[in-house]
Design a protein around this nucleic acid. Structure first.
Length: 435
DNA sequence: TCTGGGGTCCTAGGACCC
DNA sequence: TCTGGGGTCCTAGGACCC
């Protein structure tokens, strides 16, 4: 773990930049991607829009007030996914150790690449060049000895509204859009940041710590571990103490499994009756089922989320005997859960999801370790830019397991997996915990 | 600051089992 | 009959991220 070299890439204004590529006529104009209605928010803002003070997570209506000529483009997730897949493939040309964090961010472990690719700053510069040449997009890169430091560094390498920041002046390896934090400078680089800059410190924790007089990461590093645990709980207290002291061993994880699939919608106008929600719940359940099946996944827990007019949010869930990817099952469980909630209070948002997923790699395991093979390479960003071949492969594998072992194979495999192989029948009642 | 949509992770309490 | 501690699973809520 010693002396790792971790690179964090973060695309600049990703959604907005992708839209500008598709709509060259918008170049130079203030553009945001996001919901256009009364209740929409900004998902990404172009740099021209940021000059007006517009930023992501801001309501579109406020953004319009700040910038009257704002162009609001509705999001096209499918397109961004396809572009993202191609970019991730470029990253994998550098190293197979790539961990995507979202469509526009990834960690790369480039520890072993020095001999082949040169100094880290060269790797970063080349990566920027590749992304620019192949996709016409800019990104910012931070390189350091851990994930959290690399992430701080990529943020410091970001262009500001007026041009590139010069935050690199007190660190070595500053290169246009690439910031390498020299191990000798890491402590000062880290301790100078406000605590809110740490990955995992949001407004609540920031306030809580500010009340104790803790403002910078340096302040945080000086707080005794036990005191921090007493204030923030065992998990986050210890974690933040480690981060503030530059201890971050978290590895770059290449194949992380999806944990849940959900779909939610904020209504343009609040709903007050169950009947007015039926069509939406059915539609969301069907979409969740569809997305699960495309990926060869099924879920044992059905989740329902409701946000009321006053913004209070409740979640209800029910775990079934067996994993399902059936739209009618998800539908009826979600409806059941919703029926027990007081919708007459005024419902602003409803969400439906599944969790406790089985399938995908588990489906292959359920088939006694047998795997299906495919001609050619499936899942490479070049020959499979939108991931459809990979999905087809996953779905095909699950279908094949079903065909060979019956419809129950997927669900009971999940039950076996969770309980360590002691109950191949998988029959159990879970509604109220009785057996 | 009148607050989207998709996620992940953590905590805490209760049921249940051994 | 009373007491108990550890482990796992489930549910609900909340912080946080992009």
């Amino acid at each position: 773990v010693a002396d790792r070299v971790i690179l964090h890439v973060d695309m600049d204004a990703f959604f907005a930049s992708v839209e500008l590529l598709r709509h060259p006529e918008l170049h130079g104009r203030p553009v945001v991607v996001g919901g256009g209605g009364d209740r929409g928010v900004v998902a990404a803002a172009s740099y021209a829009a940021r000059a007006f003070g517009v930023h992501s997570a801001m309501s579109t209506s406020r953004a319009r007030r700040l910038c009257p000529h704002l162009v609001v483009v509705p999001p096209d997730h499918g397109h961004y996914s396809a572009v993202s897949a191609r970019i991730m493939a470029l990253f994998r040309d550098i190293t197979p150790l790539v961990e995507p964090l979202s469509l526009d961010e990834a960690f790369l472990d480039i520890t072993g690449t020095r001999r082949l690719l040169g100094a880290p700053v060269e790797v970063g510069a080349r990566l920027r060049e590749q992304v620019s040449t192949h996709e016409g997009l800019d990104c910012s890169i931070g390189i350091a000895s851990s994930k959290s430091l690399a992430k701080l560094a990529s943020k410091a390498a970001k262009p500001s509204v007026g041009g590139y920041d010069s935050t690199g002046s007190d660190t070595s390896g500053w290169h246009h859009g690439v910031l390498v934090v020299d191990p000798a400078d890491e402590e000062r680089f880290l301790h100078d940041h406000p605590i809110g800059a740490l990955w995992g410190v949001g407004p609540v924790t920031e306030q809580r710590l500010a009340a104790l007089g803790i403002v910078t990461v340096g302040d945080l590093a000086r707080v005794p571990r036990d005191a921090l645990i007493a204030h923030l709980g065992a998990g986050s207290g210890a974690h933040l103490h480690d981060l503030a002291n530059g201890n971050d061993d978290r590895p770059v994880v290449v194949d992380s499994q999806v944990k849940s699939i959900s779909q939610e919608e904020t209504f343009a106008h609040d709903r007050h009756a169950l009947d007015d929600l039926r069509a939406d719940v059915v539609g969301m359940a069907d979409q969740v089922a569809d997305r699960a099946r495309r990926r060869g996944l099924a879920g044992r827990t059905v989740q329902l989320k409701v946000r009321y007019r006053d913004f209070t949010t409740v979640a209800r869930s029910r775990t079934l005997d067996r994993a399902t990817d059936q739209p009618d099952v998800i539908r009826s469980v979600a409806w059941d859960l919703l029926s027990e909630l007081p919708v007459e209070r005024g419902v602003r948002l409803v969400g439906v999801g599944i969790a406790n997923l089985v399938g995908g790699d588990d489906a292959l395991a359920a088939g006694g370790g047998e795997q299906l093979t495919f001609d050619g390479l499936v899942g490479d960003g070049r020959n499979d830019p939108d991931g459809s071949a990979r999905r087809a492969a996953a779905t095909g594998a699950v279908d094949e397991v079903r065909r060979r072992f019956g419809d129950d194979a997927i669900g009971s495999a999940g039950a076996r997996r969770r309980r360590g192989g002691d109950d191949p029948t998988g029959d159990r009642t879970t509604r109220d915990g009785s057996r």
